[in-house]
Write a protein that binds this DNA or RNA. Sequence first.
DNA 1: CGCCTTTGTGAACAACGTTAAGATTTGCTT
DNA 2: AAGCAAATCTTAACGTTGTTCACAAAGGCG
Lengths: 240, 240
Amino acid sequence: MKASYHHGDLRQALLDASLRILASRDAGDLSLREVARQAGVSAAAPYHHFDNKLELLAAIGVEGFALLEKELREAARHEAPGRATLESCILGYVRFALAHPSHFRVMHHPELRDPEAHPELHAHRQGIWQYLGERMAQPESFGGALDETERSNLMALAWSTAHGLARLLVAGALCPSEPPFPVAADPDAVAQTVAATLRQVDSLTAPSETEGDRVRHESDGLNAGHELAEADQENSLTLL
Amino acid sequence: MKASYHHGDLRQALLDASLRILASRDAGDLSLREVARQAGVSAAAPYHHFDNKLELLAAIGVEGFALLEKELREAARHEAPGRATLESCILGYVRFALAHPSHFRVMHHPELRDPEAHPELHAHRQGIWQYLGERMAQPESFGGALDETERSNLMALAWSTAHGLARLLVAGALCPSEPPFPVAADPDAVAQTVAATLRQVDSLTAPSETEGDRVRHESDGLNAGHELAEADQENSLTLL
DNA sequence: CGCCTTTGTGAACAACGTTAAGATTTGCTT
DNA sequence: AAGCAAATCTTAACGTTGTTCACAAAGGCG
C-alpha cells in the first residue's frame, strides 16, 4: 500500500492525524513530530504544507469555524423562521462544541488569538460573529421593540452564556458525578434547559409584554437598577 | 545583594517569576528554564520545590483559587445580605478574572483539570463551587419559592454566563474596537450590565411574580416549551 | 564540632521545533 | 518524448526544552 515517494494528500492527512491526537491531548501538547510519525512521513515533511506548528493548528481552527457556520446554517433551515432565534443560536453553538470538542478547543486556543498572525482564522471567526449578529439582530427575534442598547445587552449575555456553557461542557466541568452543583446527565439536556431558561430574558422585550411588567423589572433590584443606569450613562453597551 | 548560595524563599520567587512571564505569555508556553533564569538559579533548582512544570502551574492555580475565594467573601461582606446574591456572585467572579487574568488562565488550564493528578488544586476548585452553591442556594437569593429543578437551572445558567463572560473578557474577545457586536469600552461595565440583565431571569421566581406571568412563560415558545419539557422528563437538571 | 537534610550546581539525555542541503517525483513546455 | 523547473519528501543538524543524576554548599541539630 505504501504507494509512492509522494504521499498524495499529505496536508489533509496531517490535519486528520492531528485531530486524532487532539481527541485525547490538549492543543498545547501536540507534537509536530508525532503528527508526522502517525502520518508516516519524516519530521520535516509537514513544513512543505504549513509554515510551522501554529499554522497547522490555525488550519484546524479554520476547518472548525467553517464547520460551525455550516451546521448553524443547516440548523437554521430546519426551524420556523424568526422564532426563538436567540435560543436556537445558543443551542447550535453548544451542540457544535459537544459534537466537535477537538475543533472547538483549537478554535479558542489562546496562542491563535492574534488577528495579524493568523488572518484567515481571524476572518472565519469574524464571519461567525457576523452571522450570529445578523440572525440575532432580526427584529422578529425578540418581538420587535428593542433599541440598540437593549439588543447589545442581550447579545453580550447570550454570547457569554453560549460560550461559557460550551466551554464548561467540553471541559467536563458540568458533569453530574462531581458537582459544582447538580446538573443533568445528558449535556445536551443541560444546554436545552439553560437556553430555554435564558429565553425568559428574551420575553421581557417580547410584544406580548405589558407596560406593568416593564416598570416592575426596571425598579426591581436595590442596586441593580442603579448600577445598570450608571453603566448606561458612562459608556454602556451602545453601538461601538 | 547576591546574598548566599541558598536563596531564602526560592519557591515563592519562582511563582512570582512565573506570573511575571505569564502576564504576556500563555501557560502552555511557559518555560521552566526561563523561570529559573529570571529567578537567578540553575535549571534544575526548581525541582527541589516542585515535582515538575505542571506542579508549578498547579501551585499558581491554588494561589488563584484561594485569592478568588477571599475576594468573593470580601465582596459579600460589603453588601446588603441576601439581596441580588446571584448577580453579586457573577460580578465578583468576572471582576476577579479581570483583575488577575494570569491566575485566571492558569486556574482553567486544560492540562490541570485531572482531579487525581492535582488533588490540592481540585480541592480548591471544589471549594469555590461549594461556596458559590451555598450562597446561591440561600432561599432569599431568589425570593423564596424555588424547587430543586428551578434552582439547578438558574445555577447552571449563572455559572455558564459568569464563566463565559470572564473568558471572553480576559481573552479580549469582547472589546469595542473589533466587534462580534458592539459592546462597552469598560469591561466592568459590560459585566455589570450583563449581570443586571440576567437578573430578569431571577425575578421570574421572585415573590412578586404573578401566576399569569408564570403561565405565559411556560407556554411561550413554539418548540422551546416542548424541548424543555422533554429534557425535564428524560433526566433534567434535577439533583444529582 | 560533626552529621544529616535541605537546597543549590553542572553535566547529561531524549524529545522537540525548525532549518538547510540533497534526493525523488510530478507535470509543464517544447 | 525529452528535459527541466517546481513541488514534495528525506536525512542531518542546531539550539532549546523538561527532567534526572551525581555532587557541592549551607543550614540546623545532636
